[in-house]
């Protein structure tokens, strides 16, 4: 076999599998399982993502994994990821230190409709566990462009107080008088003074106009149908509910087949879906 390694890429022939280099600029442990990481692209360019999109992170020799971008594109000069230590690549990412290099491909996929459907509407964010990670990109986007949206409500549920993410930012959100923040934990400990119970319990007491509210939902697979049910009791139409779904987006470019949800590709048709578009897609939820 004649093998040719081509170092000089023809720009017209972009290799969809070739990562760009990025440098770790900040790391911080968030919980026992979750690590916060900040990066800049070595090209000096912005990542150019929209809230809700993901990137493929390469750790050379370990592999590649799809990770949601957690920062808002309104924050320039860097992007942030939060990874749970759950596999080979994320385990390696937990070892990263400032100055280390990784590969980045993307951003890929659909985004939360911050510039379209959400403009001028009341916004309800519903985040279970690390579901807060991708939704945070939209929360920050909305709060950075606060005047362009109506009422803003953020719901967050964690398994335990120790598993709460972005605790500093939660205090900032709580302190804002132009946004409401409610949270709960499944299991409390002696330090916890707040709500106890699953996240769905936060929905019935809310007062909002179901026909003027856009809901963004992200959490573990089991969470979605119960959240949607509560939103239905509030008479929220399916057209106003957006979910971000997790799958194994191995290639990110609609080829490898791993992230297929019936006929849809989570990497291209998602990860953000309008609930009305997937209600008849049985593998979705």
């Amino acid at each position: 076999m004649s093998t040719a390694t081509v170092a000089q890429m023809d720009l017209a022939q972009k290799d969809i599998y070739l990562p760009d280099l990025a440098t770790v600029t900040k790391v911080a442990s968030m919980t026992e399982m979750e690590m916060f990481l900040e990066f800049t692209l070595d090209s000096g360019q912005e990542l150019g993502h929209e809230p809700g999109q993901f990137v493929e992170v390469s750790i050379p020799g370990i592999g590649e994994a799809p990770i949601s971008v957690s920062s808002s594109p309104t924050q320039k000069g860097m992007f942030q990821l939060v990874v749970r230590n759950a596999g080979n690549v994320t385990n390696a990412m937990h070892q990263l230190q400032p100055g280390d290099k990784v590969g980045i491909r993307g951003p890929f996929g659909t985004c939360f409709p911050v510039e379209e459907a959400m403009k001028g509407k009341d916004i309800l964010f519903i985040c279970g566990g690390i579901g807060l990670v991708p939704v945070r990109s939209a929360i920050d986007y909305v709060l950075s462009n606060r005047s362009q949206y109506g009422d803003v409500t953020i719901l967050f549920g964690a398994k335990s107080p120790a598993e709460r993410l972005f605790t500093d930012e939660i205090e900032v959100w709580k302190a804002r008088d132009d946004a409401s923040f409610y949270e709960t934990v499944d299991r409390a400990d002696e330090t916890w003074k707040g709500n106890v119970g699953v996240i769905t319990r936060l929905i019935p007491p809310l007062k909002f106009d179901p026909l003027n509210t856009i809901c963004l939902v992200c959490g573990p697979p089991v969470m979605y149908k119960y959240v949607v049910l509560e939103l239905w009791w509030k008479r929220v139409p399916n057209e106003s509910i957006y979910v971000s779904l997790e799958r194994r987006m191995k290639c990110g470019v609609g080829k490898c087949g791993h992230c297929q949800i019936n006929g849809l590709y989570a990497c291209q048709d998602g990860p953000v879906f309008k609930f009305a578009d997937i209600i008849e897609v049985p593998e979705a939820l």
């Binding site: 040719a4 390469s58 050379p60 020799g61 290099k101």
Partner: peptide
């Protein structure tokens, strides 16, 4: 093979045409 890499950073495409 799709890509060659170095652990300290750097990725290059590998093309394996086989006429």
């Amino acid at each position: 093979d799709l890509i060659s890499f170095r652990r300290d950073g750097g990725f290059e495409s590998i093309f394996e045409e086989d006429p």
